[in-house]
Design a protein around this nucleic acid. Sequence first.
DNA 1: TATCCTTTGTCAAGCAAAAGTCCAATGCCT
DNA 2: AGGCATTGGACTTTTGCTTGACAAAGGATA
Lengths: 287, 287
Amino acid sequence: MPELLLNITAISRRTGIAPDTLRKWEQRYGVLRPERTAGGQRRYSETDVQRVEWLRDRIAEGWRIGEASRMLDESGSMALDDPTELCNALIKAIRDVDVNAISSALDQTFAVLPLSQALDCVISPVLCWAGDAWHKGELSVGQEHAVSARVRNHLAALMVQSTGNVRGMAVLACGPGEYHDIGLLMLAISLRKDGWQVENLGPDTPVDTAIELAHRVNATILCFSVALETSVERLRESLASFNAVTGIKIVVGGASVTPAIAREFGVTYVIGSLDETVAQLRLLKRT
Amino acid sequence: MPELLLNITAISRRTGIAPDTLRKWEQRYGVLRPERTAGGQRRYSETDVQRVEWLRDRIAEGWRIGEASRMLDESGSMALDDPTELCNALIKAIRDVDVNAISSALDQTFAVLPLSQALDCVISPVLCWAGDAWHKGELSVGQEHAVSARVRNHLAALMVQSTGNVRGMAVLACGPGEYHDIGLLMLAISLRKDGWQVENLGPDTPVDTAIELAHRVNATILCFSVALETSVERLRESLASFNAVTGIKIVVGGASVTPAIAREFGVTYVIGSLDETVAQLRLLKRT
DNA sequence: TATCCTTTGTCAAGCAAAAGTCCAATGCCT
DNA sequence: AGGCATTGGACTTTTGCTTGACAAAGGATA
């Protein structure tokens, strides 16, 4: 396939970047390495066009060309900024068991997108897809573990910085026997961003011990993630004895609870995107 | 690789706060401490973005910037730098269920100590202590979960930065039914620091799927953490069929394996501090 | 209510760094 | 031959830094 190569005027017209500027970018930041004719003139490929367009878009976002070109190096040739594309790139990387591609797609996602968009438009869909693909046998358990672990690392990194407390303390936990805590982690991050101080107890937490800890730290809300059917019963037992506790709003969400169950238990039910959930919880401030 | 850093225009566009204002916030309230380029320009991290967004949201709610920034760095200023003291401070904070103190002690630990010292002299002892205290009933399950989750977050944050691969790929996993993955996480970080590319599959990973994935990513070593008695049997079954695989060194460690068991399985046994373990694994490069 | 102080965002001046543009001499391409 | 390209350097513009000033708001006090 004889690749169509552009001269500097052509790429300049297509990208809107002046020829002089392109040469300086090449000289100063090494972002482009166009082919040369025998006589030394530059001939650009389609890939080069994409790289220039990507850089142009970063500059429009306020980045300096020096930083943008460094980003281009780090992210290899990929350099996406659209949630859907990132999502697809991530899924492809997972399918191909391409560890480096997974890493850089995740890096990109969190670097380029606002947090709530990264979570709702990339991370959540990818995890859902991975769950599906695993059920269908398209993805091995190992692949699923590998990607979960990587995602969890990225999310956990967002939890380390300490922030102030303007809304109160939120204690989060997965019920006993529940080990899928990524959803809870995403909620933890979103709540923290909304001004809560968050104590995430993570997977497999006995209900009564969570309630006890919520009291000790004077929590405003206590949130359980319930994905397994069996957890509902355990929750019923534990909540029966603690239902009357004052001050702490108990909240449940997850695949296995319904509004009816929540009503029966006398607790609050939340559902929806992360932003919606956060908005619901914000209204629950201690009365 | 230094993570992506934004210049002042980029962070300003993303957060909607004017550059002038950001500089004044830094000067007056010390909320931000951006890196500087050689030329003295500010370069902000994703963490800085989060902080600015947090402040912006508080202001939108009617708080004054002075108040908001004070809430942001409420975390204590103890300034310890001795491993023993940090260890004690952490234990005391856990006992007292003082969430802020736990956070800031952990922050301090990782900020002040070299990584291997932080892990071997603070994190490991504290986790051992927590396990003991839990057995003795001095610590509730909730407290134990809370501190585990926090530690795990800090460790996971250390895993996100992508590094080069000079020694080969190491696949790590907890055996099936094993959910305590913090030890493995510490090993992952140490290996990473030693130049390995690490794929950590985390808790509850079936042995055969780990082996399969190790093959697909062309791993040099595959390391299982085995804490439960019951896992030994499962390991025996799975390794029986895969023992002959070529090229991948299989390694086991943890409370429930012994050199004798490892010899029986035809795998390598590792034990000792993290540094010692890493040193042992370094010698196992593909032959 | 009038007065005063504090807090906070914005702006300006002068300088430095980074990035874009221009120039001149020379050489390619058709 | 005539229009483009190349290189290296000089030059201009834009962005960023610091210090400091200033005015609009908020809050307290008389």
